[in-house]
Amino acid sequence: MEYLVSLSIGVLTATGVFLTLRARTFPVVLGLTLLAYAVNLFLFSMGRLTIGLPAIIDKTAKAAQYSDPLPQALVLTAIVIAFGMTAFLIVLALKARGELASDHVDGLADNQQIAGQQNIVKNSDPDKGAAE
């Protein structure tokens, strides 16, 4: 189980970092979301991995037999914060898309990029026509 969890955290983090480094706002948002998932899993596993143990200590049970409740509380807080921040970021990215007329993170699409986009549009038109 340890390998599986650490592998998931690693893959999520790597994907998140890769997407965050992209030049368009949407992959960046996705990347940040994946990073948030990764860190939530990571925080959760910091209470050590246990199966089938209660988070509330029973007086009659042995002291060691419980799962650490604190990381669960931390994850809950982190989820709420990450959720709110992602919502804010999406709205901001949309606002930037509207005001800057580009979804590039630097906002200023240079001529090459615009030309490239026009080519894509031109190329896609005949395909559409053919499909129809």
């Binding site: 960046v28 940040l32 990215a93 906002g107 200023l108």
Partner: peptide, 10 residues
């Protein structure tokens, strides 16, 4: 401001 804000937030 929006452009600088986007960088700052990310």
């Amino acid at each position: 401001r929006t452009r600088a804000g986007l960088h700052y937030v990310v």
